[in-house]
Structures are given as structure tokens and as C-alpha cells.
Design a protein around this nucleic acid. Structure first.
Lengths: 344, 344
DNA sequence: GGTGCCCGTGGAATCGATTACATCGCACAT
DNA sequence: ATGTGCGATGTAATCGATTCCACGGGCACC
């Protein structure tokens, strides 16, 4: 493959000059520039990004580590991140952690070895040595959606507490009193927030949350199935189930189907994270929607600010400097029962 | 950040020795090795992958360019590819072309600039200069699922013709006679194959395929919606619709819903590509399933063979050397109507 | 006509690794 | 005692770019 030297030779100039025209530096005579450009296309020359990055110490590449690509929420997020990054002249390398800290750390280290300019992470649950090291190493880094307590890293997320309260109100209005929840991994920040908001909303309505109405999940489909199975072997099963992510909601539906239970007649179902398919399930599923696109865009904005300015440009009220909190909202459909709002 | 020189200095050896222990070369005394390793962890040294790749001319990285990340078929494929690659010691960089040739070419060029070792592509429809150039440039390359005619590149795919015939038989058995299809982009190889198989199966059953029963789509949700809209303003609308991918099927359902049409009572619906949500739609959707995981694994196997051996190791019967053809199969659910097999 | 300056260009160091080749010391055979 | 060979290690070239600095020539000004 042709290198810069070949181009220089072909154009009868030095490599320095070739480099100058390629990088749009001024101070190159017009005819020289033309000759160089001609040589470039004659040889189909493309600069070696590795060599360039080695020298300039920047890759114009962002790393994105997400916990599960198969989760539509994250793939939509990844898509938004990629778009935003590209429009700013960055590429994105995605690592899929599959909810495993070990895999996540593997990706973080690989990305760092490649000298990415910045790191965007939605950390899996658990103690991540690689992330702690990265955070103190000073590499530009921001969390999206999920975060790790105690690290001084900006966080871009949607606050779901208001929407969870709305959801509980909605369920209450429809007459449900025995309401269960399926959580994410125990130490998951997002799951915990959702559970806390849920608990306090129930409390507000004077409803209990017995231990056996808390299903321990892990944000994966199978755990939703298991939790549902447990609920419906209870002497007094719940009237409504709230799954704290969409994959677990899918698992619940799977299980309900094999149990022969109907939604919403036999049990109401709601999920955190809205996805296009929820419109077409039987019945359409009530869900809490996050502003996924905006999350992705804001995250990239925050990260590139960090990369290019060395510090967040957007001041923040609470939390770590540069953090942004948007809000989620409830989309009521038919899976919790009908009321004036949802009846068509 | 610490470099190999710092490690060498700290351990009191030369950089060559450090490099030797890091790469597991023999001929280093045990105590020296220990000192180096100690220095490595004392300084938290991590080798610079850019420098290493520049020198060795290999990145142990594969590029994957897919046409749409938001399509569950491709995200599942990407996931399988990443797994297979990782287990062979490669990383994967994913580029999302969003069905646009320009974007696809952008990604191909970016990946090539980064000197990836091999390229896996599921090309979008249209004439891709970058892909043609890549193919002749001799970089290891394989197509998955979709391909470009006339390029001598191994192809890993599933043959859907048998399954399409099965589907038509299924529809026929359920009494449907006016059957419509929604195609992908005109020049799409996969779409064309599906359409051809569909047409010949209809013919086999003595059914016509009038022009107005062919909806021109582009593998995206919106086009499914539009095609359905066109079908149902026809004086004699179809009794069954076959969408050649899952996103367009989603669009059809959207449109059917706004039209107030029921599936399968008013119209039957089937899709190419099975996804987990099809089990839970209203009604569950009959679909043709591809062995997605295996497609991904085989593709990586073929590509790494090419990278490491310089030529395909697996001989192939037909088509380009190294090509693999698996087969898809029909999964009958309730969206086309009930028969003994699907009635529960 | 000499001095100084700017413009366009080339030479060479540099980024951080790998690796061919040189070197050194030591044991062993002659 | 000296040559030989081998094992362990160091020196320096190299990959392909960027960029600092130097150089030469033309022009303006004194």
C-alpha cells in the first residue's frame, strides 16, 4: 500500500510538503498542491491512521461500552451516540459488556490501549477495577444512563422518579392494589433508583410492598421469566407487575403466556424503557420512555467538551460538574387495564 | 502515560528485553523476566496498541459494516460476530450504514485507514466504490447475508428459498389466494432472491402476482407502512402480505392498526427474519428464521482464515471459494390464520 | 548593492513499539 | 591457553505519519 513517501516521490516534493497539503496547512504554492493532490489520487493514497495517531497523540475516536447490545434501549442509544460523534468528526468503537464486569473491563482496557480520546460508559453492576483506574487516570470519560457511585465522572441520564410515581398513580387509578416489581441487579444504580421511587410512591398511596413482591432480576429476559414464575406460584399473586427494563418485561410476557394468564385481565404489566415493539404486543405495553436520542447526543457533547476543552463547558446544578439530568415520562397503553385515557 | 522506555529504565534493562518478556519470547532469564513484570505493574504500563500495530502491520481487529443497527437481525448478527471474534483474539469495530451507500463507504474507508486486518460486510444496496476498491485491493473480506454481484468475495448466508416456498404453501393451505409482497431495495440481492422465490412458489400454486401486489420497500419501518397503505386503497386488496424483513413488517402492523384492520381475520401477515418480539405481538407473527448466530460465527471463521492463511480453508461447492450457505426455515404462528399446526 | 524579511520547501527528529543483528561473558572442548 | 558456541541482553533501524527548524531565493527598503 502506498505511503506518504511514495506520494512525495511521485509528486517530486518532500514528505513534509505532502503532509502540509493533506492537512490543509497554508503556505503551499497552488501548483505544488495540485501536483501533490494528483499524486494522491494517482496512487490511491490513504493516510495511515495508526501512524498519524501515534504522532499526534489523538485518534478522534470515542469508546462506548454498553451493558447489552441486544437491549433495544442500548442499541438506540448507541445509534444516537454514533450519529452525534460522526457529526463532530469522531468515530465510535462499541464494546458490549453483556452485563458482565469482566467483559466490560476487557473492553475498557482494549479501548484504552487503542488510545481512544474519550470513553462513554454505561457500567454494568459490580466493582470495576478498570473503570476506577480509568477515572483516576484522567482520560476524558462520561457515564450514560448508569453510573458508579463515588467516581467523579459526569453523568448523563434521565430521572425516572417522576414517571415511576405517575405509573403507580395510573395503576392505582385502575384499581390495582397488589403491585410487584422486578428489579435489576442489586447494586445497579438505575434499578435502585427505580425501586426506591416505586416504593415511596406505593407508600404515598398507602400500598405495601411485601418482600415476595420484589423479584430479583438482572435486566435480562430470562430473569423476567423466573420472577414471573415465582410471583404466580404465590398464594396471593400480584395484580400488577412492573419490570424495570424492557427485556425483563419480555420475559414476563413469555412466562405469562405459558401460564395461560391474560394481560391485562389477569395481571397488569408495565415496563421501564419504551421500544417500538411495545405498540404491537398483545396488548400494547404501558412503559416509561426515556429521551434516548437526546441522552446520546448530550453524552457525546459532554464527552467531546471534555476531550477538546479539558473540562465540562456546561455548568451543572447538582452532582458532578458537567452532569445532565433529563426526565422520563409515562406512556400509558392497554397492558394495565383500560381507563378513559387509554380506551380507544 | 508510561511507555516501554520507562519500564525498561525502571527494571534496569533495555526496551528490547521488555518487549521480549511482554510478547512471551523465550531466552529471557527468569529473574530478569520477574524484574520486568514487576516494573510493568509498578508503572501500570500498558502497551500502546497503535505503535505496536504500526510496527507489526497487524491490528488484530476486524471491521464489521452492517446496514442497520436498529434492525434486530443485524444487532443479533453483530453480537454473534463480536463473540466469535473475541474468542479468536480479535476485536471488532462496527460501522452502521443505515442503508445508505455513502455512509457505508465512509465506514469502509475509515476502517481501512485504521488498518483493520479484515472486513466483514453486509452491503447496502447501490454501487459502492469503496467496496469495489477494497475487494480488488486484496484486503481479507467476506460478505454476510447480503452481497454484491460480480465481486469475488466469499459469502456467508442463509438460503431462504425453501422457506419462502414453505410459507407460500402455508398461506395457500389457509385459503389465501391474493398474496402481496413488500420487497427491499430494488437492487438488493437478498430481497431479489426472496421475491423470485416468492414469485415462483406462487406460480407453482397457480397464483398470480399482479404488479400492484408488489410493494416497493427499503427494509425500513416507514416503507412497510407506505406499502400497506397502498395495498389497502386498492379496489381489491390482498388477503395476505409478506414483508421481506422484520422492520417493514412492523411498519405494516402500524398501518394496519391505524386502518383498523385485524390480523389475521382481515389480512394475513408474515415476515422474513424472526425476532423474539414476534412471539408477543398481537397476534404472534409467522416468520422465516435465519440461523443468525451461526451466520456470525461462520463469517468470522471464514474471515480469520483469510487473514491468517491468506486463502479460504473450507472449500466450497458453488459460488466463490470459501462461501457458505445455510438454510432458513419457516416458523408458523397465528398471523396468517389458524390451522391444526398453529391452533393451540 | 547590501540587509532583512517572508515565502515555499526540505531535512531530520519524533511518537512507541518490534526485531535483526551485534555484543558480551562464560563454559567447554581441544 | 585459546577457539567455539550459546545464552542473555543491548543497539539501532524501522513502521508512516507530523512538525520544528533551517535554507535559499526573491523583493523591498535604505
Amino acid at each position: 500500500m502506498a505511503g506518504i513517501k511514495d506520494v512525495a516521490a511521485h509528486a517530486g516534493v518532500s514528505v513534509a510538503t505532502v503532509s502540509r497539503v493533506l492537512n490543509g496547512h497554508s503556505g503551499v504554492r497552488e501548483d505544488t498542491r495540485a501536483r501533490v493532490l494528483a499524486a494522491v489520487s494517482a496512487l490511491r493514497y490513504r493516510p495511515n491512521a495508526l501512524a498519524r495517531s501515534l504522532r499526534t497523540d489523538q485518534t478522534r475516536t470515542l469508546g462506548l461500552v454498553i451493558s447489552d447490545v441486544l437491549n433495544p434501549f442500548f442499541t438506540e442509544l448507541a445509534r444516537a451516540v454514533e450519529d452525534a460523534a460522526r457529526s463532530r468528526g469522531y468515530s465510535v468503537i462499541i464494546g458490549n459488556a453483556d452485563e458482565q464486569v469482566a467483559l466490560q473491563d476487557h473492553h475498557v482496557r482494549t479501548l484504552l490501549d487503542r488510545r481512544i480520546d474519550g470513553l462513554l460508559v454505561s457500567p454494568a453492576e459490580g466493582d470495576s477495577v478498570a473503570l476506577r483506574e480509568a477515572a483516576v487516570s484522567g482520560i476524558p470519560m462520561v457515564f450514560v444512563d448508569r453510573w458508579i457511585e463515588g467516581l467523579d465522572v459526569p453523568l448523563i441520564r434521565a430521572d425516572g422518579r417522576g414517571a415511576v410515581r405517575e405509573l403507580v398513580a395510573h395503576l392505582y387509578a385502575l384499581g390495582h392494589r397488589r403491585i410487584a416489581i422486578i428489579t435489576g441487579p442489586v447494586a445497579s444504580t438505575t434499578s435502585n433508583e427505580r425501586v426506591r421511587a416505586f416504593r415511596s410512591a406505593l407508600c404515598e398511596f398507602g400500598l405495601p410492598l411485601p418482600e415476595h413482591y420484589i423479584g430479583q432480576g438482572d435486566f435480562q429476559t430470562a430473569s423476567g421469566r423466573q420472577a414471573a414464575e415465582a410471583f404466580f406460584t404465590l398464594p396471593e399473586p400480584p395484580e400488577a407487575v412492573f419490570a424495570t427494563d424492557n427485556l425483563m418485561a419480555l420475559g414476563v410476557m413469555d412466562q405469562l403466556r405459558t401460564l395461560g394468564l391474560r394481560v391485562p385481565e389477569d395481571v397488569a404489566l408495565a415496563a421501564f424503557d419504551d421500544i417500538p415493539w411495545f405498540l404491537h404486543t398483545d396488548p400494547p405495553i404501558t412503559a416509561i420512555a426515556q429521551p434516548t436520542q437526546e441522552l446520546g447526543h448530550r453524552a457525546v457533547a459532554a464527552l467531546t467538551d471534555l476531550v477538546e476543552w479539558g473540562s465540562p463547558r456546561t455548568p451543572s446544578g447538582e452532582g458532578c460538574a458537567g452532569s445532565v439530568t433529563l426526565s422520563a415520562h409515562l406512556i400509558a397503553r392497554r397492558s394495565c387495564g383500560e381507563d378513559e385515557r387509554t380506551r380507544r
